[in-house]
């Protein structure tokens, strides 16, 4: 029973990791950009939530009313002003610029908020749980996190396959030159893609901050979890990303059950094993 409990906690944790991953997946899918500062933006989202919660007294989930549009705009401006200039055939500029951003952002957060750990007050939500059977109970907050993650992925899936903007995203992903002949401005489309990715990052940041203590240095680890979920799931598949996140979450939960020091390590090792045996992930898109 203890193990069932562990796996269930892992699955729910995986939802959060899937949220880390979808932003990355989106950016790579549409503009072949890998944003190394992704994890640090998640932490930025968490800090923005903290500022909103402490200054306006809103509840953490309500703080998204402000944090989400702010992150959306940061994403759009960042892409138009900075990242679009790095895109091209050479992978170095985007990689190094976003790596630089990661270090800059971490240290700015450190200067502004200090290295003290913070947490968003989860209140009742953090304490309550649903008892399934005698031994198995599910925390309400992890459950909500998971459901939100599924909703986010479902929403993105809808956006991608059922809307005009999504069609333009997919066309851009296929052929960046030809799509311009259709009247699609790459810079704007890339800006929107980054903006949407950052909106997801905002949600992920708030839920992360409700779940755990955070400080300015924990961004890169979140980048790695998201990245691992993307690769495990297979590039280009959003639902695959959810499965990737769940596998990672379960691996970490089982690792932690064996020895608390093994939580993160177990996740990384499962990722490396999958990379060795299934380098294209579990659900690769048929063609790249």
């Amino acid at each position: 029973m203890e193990w069932v409990n562990t796996v269930v906690q892992g699955v729910l944790l995986g939802g959060l990791y899937a949220m880390f991953a979808t932003g990355l997946s989106l950016m790579f899918g549409i503009m072949r950009l890998v944003n190394i500062a992704h994890g640090d933006f998640i932490i930025l989202g968490a800090y923005l939530g903290l500022v909103v919660v402490t200054t306006l007294g809103l509840s953490p989930l309500l703080s998204l009313i402000i944090v989400l549009p702010v992150m959306f705009m940061i994403g759009y401006v960042l892409q138009r002003v900075l990242l679009n200039r790095t895109l091209g055939t050479d992978i170095l500029p985007p990689l190094l610029v976003t790596f630089g951003l990661s270090i800059i952002l971490q240290n700015i957060l450190l200067e502004v908020f200090s290295a003290d750990t913070q947490k968003l007050p989860a209140g009742e939500l953090g304490l309550s749980s649903i008892t399934v059977t005698g031994d198995l109970s599910i925390g309400v907050l992890p459950l909500i996190t998971f459901l939100v993650s599924v909703a986010v992925i479902g929403g993105l899936q809808f956006l991608f396959y059922r809307t005009e903007l999504g069609r333009a995203f997919r066309a851009t992903s296929d052929d960046q030159e030809t799509v311009r002949l259709m009247g699609v401005g790459n810079s704007h489309i890339f800006g929107l893609a980054m903006a949407i990715a950052m909106a997801v990052v905002a949600v992920a940041g708030i839920f992360l901050a409700l779940k755990t203590n955070f400080d300015p240095t924990i961004g890169p680890a979140r980048l790695l979890y998201g990245f691992e979920a993307v690769i495990i799931g297979g590039l280009g598949s959003l639902w695959g990303t959810l499965v990737g996140g769940i596998i990672l979450g379960v691996a970490q939960a089982i690792g932690a059950q064996i020895d608390p020091g093994w939580q993160i390590l177990a996740g990384h090792l499962v990722f490396l094993i999958i990379l060795i045996f299934r380098p294209r992930g579990l659900f690769p898109r048929s063609v790249d």
Partner: peptide, 19 residues
């Protein structure tokens, strides 16, 4: 021709009407 491979025929046509 440069069709968008991940789009259906109809979606390709609709992309033409994007503007």
């Amino acid at each position: 021709r440069r069709l968008f491979p991940s789009l259906s025929v109809e979606e390709n046509l609709l992309m033409g009407g994007y503007n």
